[in-house]
Simulated assay, not measured.
Amino acid sequence: MKATQLYKDFFESEKSGGLVLIAFTLISLAIANSAFGNSYLHFWETTFAGHSIEHWINDGLMTIFFLLIGLELEREIYQGELSNIKDALLPIFGAIGGMIIPAAIFLLFNFGTETQSGAGIPMATDIAFALGILSLLGNRVPTSLKIFLTALAVIDDLGAIMIIAIFYTKALFWSNLIIALGIFSFLLVLNRLKVRNLIPYLIGGVFMWYFMLHSGVHATITGVLLAFAIPFGNGGEKSTSYILQHFLHKPVAFIILPIFALANTAIVIGTDFTTIITQNYSIGIALGLIIGKPLGIITILFIAIKLGWCKLPNELSWKSILGVGFLAGIGFTMSIFITLLAFENETIINNAKFIILLASLLAGLIGFISLKLTLSKEVIEEEN
């Protein structure tokens, strides 16, 4: 497994961004539960141009986040971990297990209830948080493990995007959807005609976002579609895709995701803590992220490797894979995002966000401690 310079830039921005996310989340929680709590909550509900500030962030700014995810996914497919099917199968099988088992655990507690629509919540992995925690372990982390976690999280996000598009679209307005897809097709034609100037794609992307927003399909899907319309070329530093991806790293990591965290972790923690954690959806989310993620990743990978469908690289061990499995249980951004689409009841949304934070924190701690012990031992064994 070879890390390109762009991958290194991606990892550096994501790991730093993860630490910033943690800080902004703590700040948001502190303000929401202070004397300024009401004013803080009302601020995000302030209407601007027909939508609340929170809505503009979740449907607007987050489209740029999905654009970056799409560009990274495209690069992984053409040149990275997913370009070689043999190498790609390892994170693909891991991601499949890490999506199916958490969803199954959630449905075990919520099937047939009003909250069963939340099955997608524990399926996603927060790349920034997960890589941020992994980065705390320093140079003892092998590059292959960093790339495995990155590829796993990117595939997880792709799965989450597909889930959002398929299961969280409540009503379709076909005329707007057809126009949006028509614009996408036009951008693909520009790509085929080898138009490398970024401006036509960005202008087209804005119009595509507008019509997608009014189509019933979540507007953030535009980001992923636009990413695959933008010319990749040879993937070099002068390619359109590379330039945009490189430009977006820091704004997404240090502006967009922290703003998302501020707007969506303004959670008032009530005194009925016991009531919150004993709700079926709370149990489903917590067990899905903390147990379902590592269990699903390990189980499906073990089966796939035993059947000879893929193999574990020499630098990786089952213990390190398990540790990464726990880090994959850090849902945060995508889990909160899906929560907003899955539920309409504000109390359930607020409680689910709180459980996501707790479960992600616990999964991150377990993963960090597990990897710290495992990687230290593996380093010692290699030296001997």
Rank of each mutant, 00 (worst) to 15 (best):
Ala286Ser: 13
Tyr7Ile: 11
Gly98Arg: 15
Leu108Trp: 09
Met212Lys: 00
Asn38His: 08
Ile338Thr: 08
Leu29Gln: 00
Thr125Gln: 05
Ile290Ser: 10
Tyr242Asn: 06
Trp318Phe: 06
Ala124Leu: 10
Ser360Lys: 13
Ser370Val: 06
Ala30Gln: 02
Leu312Asn: 01
Phe326Gln: 03
Val379Arg: 04
Phe10Met: 07
Leu248Thr: 14
Ser16Thr: 09
Gly70Arg: 11
Leu362Glu: 01
Thr169Arg: 14
Ala342Gln: 10
Asp87Ile: 04
Ser83Gly: 11
Val268Ser: 13
Ala342Gly: 10
Asn38Ala: 03
Ile163Glu: 00
Ala263Gly: 05
Ile298Tyr: 11
Asn176Leu: 06
Leu327Thr: 10
Ala30Trp: 14
Thr25Lys: 00
Leu137Gln: 10
Gly204Val: 05
Leu198Gln: 10
Trp56Cys: 07
Leu362Cys: 09
Ser117Leu: 06
Ile291Leu: 11
Leu341Cys: 09
Ile298Cys: 02
Ile276Met: 11
Leu107Gly: 02
Leu67Trp: 09
Gly364Ser: 09
Leu181Arg: 03
Gly132Ile: 14
Leu19Lys: 00
His55Thr: 15
Thr47Glu: 12
Tyr7Phe: 14
Leu131Phe: 10
Asn139Lys: 15
Ile221Cys: 04
Asp59Asn: 13
Ala227Arg: 07
Ser34Asn: 05
Ile161Trp: 08
Lys319Glu: 03
Tyr40Val: 11
Val224Ala: 13
Ile179Tyr: 05
Met1Lys: 02
Ile105Asp: 01
Gly112Gln: 06
Phe232Pro: 06
Thr25Leu: 10
Ile203Ala: 13
Phe106Ala: 02
Ile291Lys: 00
Ile178Leu: 14
Gln245Phe: 06
Met162Leu: 15
His218Phe: 06
Ile221Pro: 02
Gly325Glu: 06
Trp318Ile: 03
Pro294Asn: 01
Gly70Asn: 13
Ala359Ser: 14
Phe43Gly: 01
Leu341Trp: 03
Ala352His: 04
Gly329Asn: 06
Ala35Glu: 05
Pro122Asn: 09
Trp209Cys: 02
Leu136Met: 12
Gly325Thr: 09
Pro251Asn: 09
Asn350Ile: 08
Thr275His: 14
Asn345Lys: 09
Asp126Glu: 07
